[in-house]
Write a protein that binds this DNA or RNA. Structure first.
Lengths: 202, 202
DNA sequence: GTCTATACCTAGATAGAC
DNA sequence: GTCTATCTAGGTATAGAC
């Protein structure tokens, strides 16, 4: 590892960053299936061997790409303040933000699902679960708990379960958007309305 | 179980079936990343060239695997009769069934997401959307509509949107189960409770 | 329809000059 | 730290005997 402490040695010439960017681009356009070190190097305008210098091997590179996106998971609920704005509007905005986030991360999530070796390498560090929604649940659940205190949300709501449902819907819409190259059927508003009012007859 | 319209020519010697089974097995265990015609042939106990004889090329094989699972999508809501049994119990059973279904299909869905070429081949036939939940929505929405008529479900419920949410939750749980090698946090019951009662304070 | 054998290519990875 | 050059294994796909 050359860089744990960050910028201890030589100044970066941007190769590492270019490689990461190219990897993400290919992942988004073509998926892991077509992700080769050769094409990454070509697109990054970099020697193929530089990839191995920086990341050790192909999987190390994939790991780095995944790691790059994990911290951003917690930003999804930023700007949401319980009590401010309408509950429905807040949820629609949250859901839209989540869908956009998942649309960016979906190719990477798909890569992890499609590559057992990559999955295994994360399991070794116990980081497999980090990819899941656990990181995302907390801030959303916190927001819902805030609204619950204010009485805008059912007093007996299981906020973690509700946050999971929101994440599930967002992920679904992002995946569908990628599969059919268009937005998923129905709007985010429809889903929010279902969630707000529930299924059971009142 | 000699299948439907085919069996016009020579009797099958089971090679085709063995190849499909081996492909699914590898897809489930390792993902597309490691899916090679060589390993498929090895596991199926078959000559590699037979794969190309039956399916043309690697993508043709993948297509066949996907096609194999599409018809089963509509069976997920079978056995659900509006009015029979408790609404909550029905939904829990439905969700559990959906999770099991998605757990089987998830590797294939991941493969499609991870391979742009495969995605494109389905887009050509307009079948890309078939992979999505559209097939699954109808029977679930029909069940919900039935319950709505009986007054056990909100009169103004958007049944399609609700069905989508159920599918989203099921897919999420299946994916999480694969990523962390254990059931997803919370039970299906928790999600159902959220969906039944909704978020908003009554 | 299924096999063996093989052609041909691209993959991931390393060595060593600068 | 980055490059050029190269090795080897494995990938998809085809030819032709049976």
């Amino acid at each position: 590892m050359t860089d744990a402490g960050r910028r201890r040695g030589r100044p970066s010439t941007g190769v590492r960053e270019a490689v990461l960017a190219a990897t993400e681009a290919i992942l988004g356009e073509s998926g892991v299936a077509r992700l080769s070190t050769k094409e990454i190097a070509r697109r990054a305008g970099v020697a193929e061997s530089s990839i191995f210098y920086h990341f050790g091997d192909r999987l190390g590179l994939l790991q780095a790409v995944v790691a790059l996106h994990l911290p951003r998971f917690k930003d999804v609920a930023d700007g949401l303040v319980p009590g401010e704005g309408g509950l429905r509007a807040n949820l629609v905005a949250l859901l839209d933000g989540l869908v956009a986030f998942y649309a960016r991360v979906a190719p990477i999530l798909a890569a992890v699902q499609a590559d057992a070796e990559l999955r295994a390498r994360f399991a070794d560090r116990g980081a497999g679960e980090v990819i899941g929604p656990r990181r995302g649940v907390a801030p959303i659940a916190a927001y819902l708990a805030g609204e619950r205190e204010l009485g805008r949300v059912r007093a007996d709501l299981d906020v973690e379960a509700a946050a999971m449902v929101l994440l599930a819907v967002a992920h679904q819409r992002a995946v569908l958007g990628r599969l059919s190259d268009g937005p998923a059927p129905g709007g985010t508003g429809d889903a929010v309305d279902v969630l707000l009012a529930g299924l059971a007859a009142g």
